[in-house]
Design a protein around this nucleic acid. Structure first.
Lengths: 120, 120
DNA sequence: ACATATGTACGCGAATCGCGTAAAATTCGC
DNA sequence: GCGAATTTTACGCGATTCGCGTACATATGT
């Protein structure tokens, strides 16, 4: 079995088998076979798994111990939380609704406000 | 075809199909199938190929352009809030710190939990 | 306790693999 | 150049493996 890191990765993100299967467009039982070692994914599926989990194929295969070696050039993209059109933010595999985003923004503002006043 | 870098790698080292096949312990025609795209190697064989060529599986799969750099991470449309090394989320123009992100995740979890129990 | 969601196990048809074989193409000595 | 040896490409066959649906087991939430 070469993908024994899959389960811990998925659980660390609180994703279900069904969620992963849907994202990959495969059956739940198929993905379950990957985690249990009963089946081996194709290279294509393995690549998609690395994308989904935000890691490298080498890490999934246990060829490397670091889950995310930063790329040589760190190109960070900035997204303002209020202007989310093309990108979906998820928590525990469920995308944030527009209502939740508003709450988050309010929450962050209060959080920062408290930080400012408390530290005076 | 996902392994089109194999041929150039092999030729850059002036190796023959037979040589690689022997090193891997497979038939020459089998390895030839990998290069031509006629067949797809198992994950195990893919790992051995990366070892042989002294590169990463991610490079063999074209997931990364640099043969010797550590594998990088690819961005998707969906971004799990836990994996924000690649993208920076901002609120009011100020990027979320890792601590704030943790708070947001906890906040969302509680929010959803409450939503479930206290249905008016 | 019940209903729903999540995880596990397995049989079947279909797709793919690895191999041997052999023809095409390239390289090499002369 | 020219043939022999090496390398590369192509393909059929048997066996393996895949992906799916289904069914069952376990966990979670109302």
């Amino acid at each position: 079995m070469f993908l024994n890191r899959l389960t811990e990765l998925r659980k660390s993100k609180r994703w279900s088998l069904q969620y992963i299967a849907d994202r990959l467009g495969i059956a739940k039982s198929t993905y379950a076979g990957y985690e249990s070692g009963y089946r081996e994914p194709s290279l294509e599926a393995t690549k998609m798994l690395a994308d989904l989990y935000g890691t490298s194929v080498d890490f999934l295969l246990g060829r490397v111990t670091e889950p995310n070696h930063p790329p040589a050039i760190q190109r960070t993209e900035h997204i303002e939380l209020l202007e989310l059109d093309q990108v979906t933010i998820t928590v525990d595999g469920k995308s944030l609704s527009s209502g939740e985003i508003k709450h988050v923004i309010a929450f962050i503002r209060v959080l920062r406000e408290m930080d400012g006043t408390a530290k005076k």
